[in-house]
């Protein structure tokens, strides 16, 4: 009965994997014949400043996105964990951006971020602040995309943290209160350690999600300004489908997958130790 899976696996997993490995050693633009190039794709990769920049950009994205996401999610989850009215309503509201397509979110946020006419800058100027050149400056663009991604995904992580919080036994808090622990101490000595597993999960999930960052820069910035939002996925897409370097793009994909696995392993080590 597992035949369907085996067939599926052979066609859509095993073959592409093998073929991808095969492509690594070739130059090919689909329309003209394939050409064996040995390890030259790797040679090109290691000299490709733009690709490394794109990986760096992706890491920058993660470095902003993950802490922001954890802080926001944890904060709202703890509020939701209290006995308040309209809990379900708020929960549903926070979750709304998660289910809406990234395209919608990106088109919407591009307007929110617009320098002259965007909602965010209108609010800033209303309160007497300067406008921020959100997606128009090399320094702000990636943080802007990270903020947007956080806004989109945080609902999911609120729920995950909420599940984690509800798993913490009440008596721990009661005992701590009797011992005279302040709320901040309770947070650091009870809540955080108890959420360790959830934390690891959140970090790994948002890392995987972050590494496939594509549609946001694709729609919003096209990778600019000054390549500051060129994510690795966008770069690979461009190499393959813009410039027709299938073999090289496969090489990039392969290398990038290794980077992802490495980062996740390191994260796991770090979180587990803490």
């Amino acid at each position: 009965m597992s035949m369907p899976y085996v067939v599926y696996f052979c066609i859509f997993v095993a073959f592409p994997l093998a073929f991808s490995f095969f492509l690594i050693f070739h130059k090919w633009n689909i329309v003209t014949p394939m050409e064996w190039v040995g390890l030259r794709n790797f040679n090109r990769l290691f000299h490709d400043i733009q690709f490394f920049k794109s990986i760096r950009n992706t890491l920058v994205f993660l470095a902003i996105h993950i802490p922001l996401q954890i802080a926001m999610a944890l904060f709202f989850a703890m509020q939701l964990n209290k006995k308040i009215k309209f809990r379900g309503f708020f929960r549903a509201l926070f979750f709304l951006p998660v289910i809406v397509s990234g395209v919608v979110i990106t088109i919407l946020w591009e307007q929110l971020y617009s320098y002259e006419t965007g909602l965010l800058n209108l609010i800033l100027t209303r309160f007497g602040f300067y406008r921020i050149p959100w997606i128009n400056s090399p320094e702000w663009a990636m943080p802007s995309i990270a903020i947007m991604a956080t806004w989109k995904n945080v609902g999911l992580y609120i729920i995950l943290f909420l599940v984690g919080l509800q798993g913490i036994p009440k008596y721990l808090y009661e005992a701590a209160e009797i011992d005279g622990a302040k709320p901040i101490q309770r947070f650091f000595y009870i809540t955080l350690p108890a959420l360790n597993n959830t934390m690891l999960l959140v970090v790994i999930l948002s890392t995987i999600g972050g590494f496939s960052l594509f549609i946001e820069p694709f729609v919003m910035t096209g990778g600019g300004p000054m390549n500051s939002t060129l994510s690795a996925m966008l770069y690979i897409y461009n190499q393959a489908f813009y410039f027709g370097h299938m073999g090289y793009a496969a090489t990039l994909g392969f290398f990038f997958a290794l980077v992802i696995l490495m980062v996740i392993l390191i994260q796991k080590k770090v979180v587990e130790r803490e």
Binding site: F15, P16, A240, M246, F254, F256, A257, I260, L261
Partner: peptide, 15 residues
């Protein structure tokens, strides 16, 4: 489940 789709994207297209 641990294979990033980034690897198979291009071969899949060719397929």
């Amino acid at each position: 489940m641990v294979i990033p789709f980034q690897i198979t994207l291009i071969p899949m297209y060719i397929l």
